[in-house]
Design a protein around this nucleic acid. Structure first.
Length: 444
RNA sequence: CGGGGCGUAGCGCAGCCUGGUAGCGCGUCGGUUUUGGGUACCGAAGGUCGUGAGUUCGAAUCUCGCCGCCCCGACCA
């Protein structure tokens, strides 16, 4: 993409409404624009990152054998009356009435709807286990939205629902989700720690929240430093293997890690003092096993091997997709702007032409652009008639992990400069080698 | 929902107390500057002062209502 043909409304000054760094940077980098309290438009740059995060979630869900689908944002109130949550949910649920005076609601979650779909079409244990998920906009009418996309009213969320014939199978689904979530967050360059949590209004027996450590987090968290040393890495997982998934879950849930809701001082004090940590965390996902909480009242049963009708065991599993952008920025930025992890970056690298209009520099940039594109990479070429300083400042602000700087001085010696946004380290390389290096970084 | 604050040019703000018809910086547009970390200079455009009513000869300024937004708290993925 050429910057002169793109829409990137960066702000030099910080809008006064933004309090925390991720919100400020998302506004300044031209990623989002507030449409109303807690509701945002996703401008091109923000949209690209949102789609990247979404793509990773899709890939990892499907790797775990979960099936994508899409449910609507608007739901009939009747379903919610059936589960009893229409009254229980309270004013956070946005209620709407259509022209026929029918009660609708903008879905804050989809347990009722998915249960309805399930009971309409599935009746035998032979069809189980099954996990369906979707990534869809949700609405919760927070009393006080804040922190940009970290706590908006409208938000994009992946929610998945498992259906299993018995407890053991459902627990495997729970474990499978935990493993897939660990992979998902790590691919986004995040360390998200699973913490034993409170089940909240959704209800349930077993639940973990995934938290990204950050000063601006809304939850106070207590953990054993040992857990931050765990890395998922390239390990291959057979998601159908119950023991293997259970083993990984055990590994990640053994060190103490809890939010303030479930924190137990007595147990925490058994952690060696030098490893005890107290911090704040941003919740970016949660997994629940809730058994037959919805299947029972809504009549979602299957016939088991013995020929009996039994309510299915369910769980639900969420990832806050739009919120993750805020969390990633909170965890990865500096004074000059965002530092995107390579897994989610909106463009693979930037090309800065220091002297737009200089025949040599222009040609070198075009060649770099074509060569990178031919490798399957997406560069952002700053071809504006701007001073070098302005171009550098823009690149730093929008956080592309790699920058290739092209100027007449370097070209005289046959080199361009490849700079890491994260470390600031630069290397002078021939254009060909620079392209090869970037391609190698992204495995292209 | 309780408490506090804000709304004046695209963005950040001053002016309001003490009424006299709107200003600064950045950005934008047109030039000059040829420039390796937001360059400098010249010129220009851009505002029903959130909105409605009231007081007044006269309201951005005073009074009241409404709308929107932000902050602290309670709540929350």
């Amino acid at each position: 993409m050429r910057l002169t043909r793109y829409f990137l409304p960066v702000l030099k000054e910080t809008p006064s409404e933004a309090q925390i760094v991720s919100h400020r940077l998302m506004l300044r980098a031209g990623m989002i624009k507030q449409a109303s309290a807690g509701i945002y438009s996703w401008l091109p740059l923000g949209y690209k990152v949102l789609r990247n995060v979404e793509r990773i979630v899709h890939e990892e869900q499907q790797r775990a054998g979960h099936i994508p689908m899409l449910m609507p944002t608007l739901q009939s109130a009747d379903l919610w009356r059936e589960s009893g949550r229409y009254d229980a949910y309270g004013p956070e649920m946005l209620r709407i009435r259509d022209r026929h005076e029918r009660d609708l609601l903008y879905g804050p979650t989809n347990e009722e709807m998915i249960t309805d779909i399930f009971r309409s079409h599935v009746s035998s244990y032979r069809d189980l286990p099954m996990t369906l998920y979707h990534i869809q906009w949700k609405f919760r009418d927070e009393i006080r939205p804040r922190f940009g996309v970290m706590r908006g009213r409208e938000f994009l969320m992946k929610d998945g629902y498992n259906f299993d014939v018995d407890y053991e199978s459902a627990i495997h689904a729970y474990n499978r989700h935990m493993v897939s979530y660990l992979r998902t967050y790590e691919r986004m360059g995040l360390q998200a720690i699973p913490m034993r949590a409170d089940s909240g209004p959704i209800g349930g027996d077993d639940t973990h929240e995934f938290l990204v450590l950050a000063d601006t987090g809304e939850s106070e968290v207590f953990y054993d430093a040992a857990i931050t040393d765990l890395k998922f890495g390239d390990r291959k997982v057979d998601y159908d293997n119950r023991d293997e998934c259970a083993e990984i879950v055990k590994e990640w849930t053994t060190p103490y890690a809890r939010t303030d809701e479930t924190h137990d001082e007595a147990i925490f004090n058994q952690v060696p003092e030098e490893r005890r940590r107290t911090s704040r965390g941003i919740e970016v996902g949660q997994i629940f096993y809730f058994g037959t909480k919805y299947s029972e009242p809504m009549g979602a049963t299957v016939v088991n091997r013995e020929g009996q009708h039994v309510p299915v065991h369910m769980g639900s599993h969420g990832i806050g997709v739009s919120r993750l952008l805020g969390a990633i920025i909170e965890a990865s930025h500096d004074d000059n702007g965002i530092i995107w992890p390579e897994g989610v970056t909106p463009f693979h690298c930037g090309i800065v032409n220091l002297k737009q209009g200089d025949a040599e520099a222009d040609r070198a940039c075009e060649q770099l652009y074509d060569a990178l594109t031919a490798k399957g990479l997406e560069p952002l070429y700053d071809d504006r008639e701007e001073r070098a300083g302005a171009k550098f400042a823009t690149m730093d602000l929008i956080g592309l992990p790699w920058r290739i700087t092209v100027g007449p001085r370097g070209l005289k010696n046959g080199v361009v400069e490849l700079t890491s946004r994260k470390t600031g380290e630069s290397e002078e390389l021939s254009p060909e080698v620079a392209v090869a290096r970037v391609a190698e970084i992204y495995g292209k």
